[in-house]
Amino acid sequence: MTQEDYWAGVERLKARLWRLARLRLDSDADATDILDEAVFRGWQSCGQLRHPEYFDTWLTRILINECSRELRRRGREQPTDQLPETSWEEPDYLPLREAVARLPDKLRWVILLRYFSDYTLEETARALNLPRSTVHARQKKALELLKLDLT
């Protein structure tokens, strides 16, 4: 992939990626920083991308990795007095935003990609590097937990 192609792809995708990071990290500034980091790392390794047609899901996967790093860093630095007292309740009693935020990470990424970022099942599977069947199962489980019927 050429540099021109890379930056053209970033330009096309950056708003979508920023919104995805914003949804996961719940912070404008962190989403911007993480997008910077993901685009930087993508640029460093875009020569290794063997299938340019998968650019979107490839860069999404880098962004997801960067979000995970940020969340681990936050977990490490979170002071004791700011830790939540409880974090998992019956999600159908919660407002949807809060219920999504309390989904286990594996399920949450599927929901964010599928229903808030308009990735197809195939694209979600590629971005998460999972079999389609696994994504489908997680999607079903997450929607059940959220009591959300989108069929």
Partner: peptide, 26 residues
């Protein structure tokens, strides 16, 4: 309803303004 809540949240996210820093990402 849960579905309405979803559509509302989705719209909220879609309407969220992008930060000006994104213009200078490259």
């Amino acid at each position: 309803e849960r579905k309405e809540e979803y559509l509302h949240m989705r719209q909220e996210e879609a309407d969220r303004p992008l930060p000006p820093e994104l213009n200078h990402l490259e």
